[in-house]
């Protein structure tokens, strides 16, 4: 069972997810994000320190995916650390880091680890499927077409021991513009 502190820390992260990421009240950043908050990883996104940086980040996402929603798929805490597994789902109707609006529906999975002190997030480490998102939005080719075998069955490692990749959003089809 989580301690009271762990429960409070999970509540902080849930509030950040629901009000921040899901756009109900992005200004919640001033309550739940420390001025010293630093983001590590995040698929190469450069995030400025503190509430302004996080508001900028979410604004980028919510401008690109105005209907975007971040689901919480897993949430647990150990002491001052909260682990969260998410999926972002939305339609890319705006520019996303230079990728023009594609009209594509994207689903982006992620896992985050956040440290919460006195009710504010002070540091976060995140990984997300940015590569898959870029492929869905048409900004990256699907990899591995050349080595894909089109037989059913084991389709991760082909008969030559090569790895190859298949975009779940595109299936086996040829690259489409």
């Amino acid at each position: 069972m989580p301690t009271d502190l762990e429960q409070r820390n999970m509540n902080t992260i849930r509030r950040w997810n629901d009000d921040g990421w899901n756009g109900r009240n992005i200004q919640v950043a001033w309550e739940v994000i420390s001025p010293e908050m630093q983001v590590h990883g995040a698929g190469g996104q450069q995030v400025n320190m503190g509430p302004e940086g996080l508001i900028q980040l979410i604004t980028t996402w919510r401008t690109a995916f105005p209907d975007g929603q971040m689901s919480i798929d897993d949430l647990f805490a150990e002491g001052d650390t909260v682990v969260i597994r998410n999926t972002w789902r939305g339609t890319q109707t705006g520019d996303f880091y230079g990728i023009p609006a594609s009209g594509k529906w994207v689903e982006i999975s992620s896992i985050g680890i956040d440290r919460v002190v006195d009710g504010k997030v002070v540091e976060g480490w995140g990984e997300l499927n940015m590569l898959g998102a870029m492929q869905t939005m048409g900004a990256m080719p699907p990899f591995g077409e050349a080595v894909q075998d089109h037989h059913k069955g084991r389709d991760v490692i082909n008969h030559h021991g090569h790895t190859h990749w298949r975009d779940p959003h595109r299936g086996h089809g040829k690259r489409t513009k």
Partner: peptide, 18 residues
């Protein structure tokens, strides 16, 4: 099990970015 990793960074490092 669930894994997430910086696959985009790897693609950049192996010179496969369009």
């Amino acid at each position: 099990s669930w894994y997430e990793f910086d696959s985009l960074r790897i693609i950049q490092q192996i010179g496969a970015m369009p």
